[in-house]
Design a protein around this nucleic acid. Sequence first.
DNA 1: ACCTGAACACCGTTCAAGT
DNA 2: ACCTGAACACCGTTCAAGT
Lengths: 199, 199
Amino acid sequence: MSAPAIPDQQLRPMRADARRNHERILAAARELFAGEDPGVQIADVAARAGVGVGTVYRHFPDKEALMGELVRERFSIFNTQLRAALGDASQAPFAALSGALRANAEALADDAATRYAMMGGGERAYGYAAAELAEFLSLSRELVGRAHASGELRPDFSEQDVPMIMCGVCATMGKRDAGWEWDRHLDLLIDGMRALPGA
Amino acid sequence: MSAPAIPDQQLRPMRADARRNHERILAAARELFAGEDPGVQIADVAARAGVGVGTVYRHFPDKEALMGELVRERFSIFNTQLRAALGDASQAPFAALSGALRANAEALADDAATRYAMMGGGERAYGYAAAELAEFLSLSRELVGRAHASGELRPDFSEQDVPMIMCGVCATMGKRDAGWEWDRHLDLLIDGMRALPGA
DNA sequence: ACCTGAACACCGTTCAAGT
DNA sequence: ACCTGAACACCGTTCAAGT
């Protein structure tokens, strides 16, 4: 067996300097991916992190893996939000679902680096987040099921529509001079999710 | 003055062989961009078109310009569709707007190459389509205005929301194993666009 | 006028040498 | 164990030579 793809997840703890470098590389990637320049290079990330390029490749097998780690961490935070919505008994089921969508969208709107990774990392970047994606769908399924049971959600809405909505809204965030607002985009979608009053 | 960015639009007509090469390059790009491989190279496009790489660069100043031309042609077709919707007196205004959205989305769903150009061409690719984008917004404004006048459209909907919706739906098309359907995405948005019955 | 493709420049990735 | 950065490979782009 070769080294794990993401040393962060390996069984034995990393040496102190390696752990520090790992965090510095991720922090540098977040700073640079969030910037204006769409052509961020691994050498830039290494320089910003204060390490050699080889060290970046020791921690992340390729550029997509570095982006994939940002995606993975973001879905982990999404899942925390979905669990909070499931655990909050004070909200009606539809409000819990739509509120979780909005909270996740707001977090993503503030995180240009992860949007960069999500939009530009290719399919393989999502592969690194497979476990978190499966958990995301599972939690979505529970929230959607409750909202169906309460009759507030349109009958044909499925848990797959939760990531679909996040993907669509994410694509419209942070476009310069586009002239639109992502939160109104989400308003349209959430209103479209409601069960028809007469049905 | 240097040569125009897109020879297709220059004042004097191209020589017959140049025109044929121009079309062959675009056809090759469409075929390759629509394929599975996300890393299409200019050398691949040139080989498929049966020309040298220098010929590709003679017709398109860089890779983004080649993608931009696909975006430009697509918005030109979008505009034809919007004009048809405006000219069809048999439809109610909301149906004309939502029908045009759906027709354009269906066309885009069948055109993976242009989706590739739209998602991966960067902001500059849209610069090549500036005139068509302005026309798209102008036509959208008229369709949206009519639907507001008839009271069927939610009051805060603006013409900027038309490209926003197209962008969001486009981002969810053609994802392998994503488990969702773009046409249901559009259903949600169109239902969210309706004015509230009680308002 | 336009075409060609070898040459150049740039950037992702590797790996031999170092600590 | 981990780090470094020169070297390599690949691909976008240019340009001198050709038709």
